[in-house]
Simulated scan of single mutants.
Amino acid sequence: MEKSLSGGRFLLVTVLNVVITIFELVGGLFSGSLSLLSDAFHNLGDAFSVVLSYAAHRIGGRRQTRSNTYGYRRAEILTALLNAGVLVIISLVLAGEAVRRLLHPEPVKGDIMLLVAVISFLANLFSTVLLNHGAKHNLNIRATYLHLLSDALASVGVIVGAVLITVWQISWVDPLITILVAAYIVYESWPIIKQTFGILMEASPKLDYDAIAHDLCQLPEVEGVHHIHAWLIDENNIVFSVHVNMDDLPLSKIEPIYRQIEALLCHKYGVNHVTIQAECRRGQDEDLFYDQNDWRHD
Rank of each mutant, 00 (worst) to 15 (best):
A117V: 08
A117S: 14
V118A: 11
V118K: 12
I119E: 03
S120L: 11
F121H: 09
L122W: 10
N124Q: 13
F126H: 09
T128L: 15
L130G: 04
L131R: 10
N132Q: 15
H133C: 12
G134C: 11
A135G: 12
A135L: 13
A135K: 15
A135E: 13
H137R: 14
N138H: 06
N140I: 10
I141L: 14
I141W: 05
R142S: 06
R142H: 01
A143E: 02
A143R: 06
T144C: 15
T144D: 14
T144E: 11
T144G: 14
T144L: 12
L146D: 05
L146H: 01
L146S: 05
H147V: 04
H147T: 08
L148A: 10
L149D: 06
S150Y: 05
A152S: 13
A152W: 08
L153F: 14
A154F: 07
S155V: 01
S155K: 05
G157T: 04
G161T: 02
A162D: 01
V163R: 09
L164T: 08
L164F: 14
I165N: 06
T166A: 10
W168D: 08
Q169F: 12
S171V: 14
W172T: 15
W172C: 03
W172I: 11
V173M: 05
V173Q: 07
V173H: 07
V173W: 00
D174E: 05
D174T: 13
P175S: 14
P175G: 09
L176V: 15
I177R: 12
I177H: 13
T178F: 13
I179H: 08
I179F: 03
L180D: 08
L180G: 10
V181C: 15
V181H: 10
V181N: 14
A182N: 13
A183D: 04
Y184N: 12
V186S: 06
V186L: 03
E188L: 08
E188P: 07
S189N: 07
W190P: 08
W190S: 10
P191K: 03
K194I: 01
F197G: 11
G198A: 02
G198Q: 03
L200S: 06
L200V: 09
E202M: 11
E202L: 08
S204F: 02
K206P: 06
K206S: 15
L207Y: 05
L207G: 04
D208L: 01
D208Q: 00
Y209Q: 01
A211V: 02
A211M: 08
A213Y: 00
A213P: 07
D215K: 04
D215E: 04
L216D: 04
L216Y: 00
L216H: 02
C217T: 10
Q218K: 11
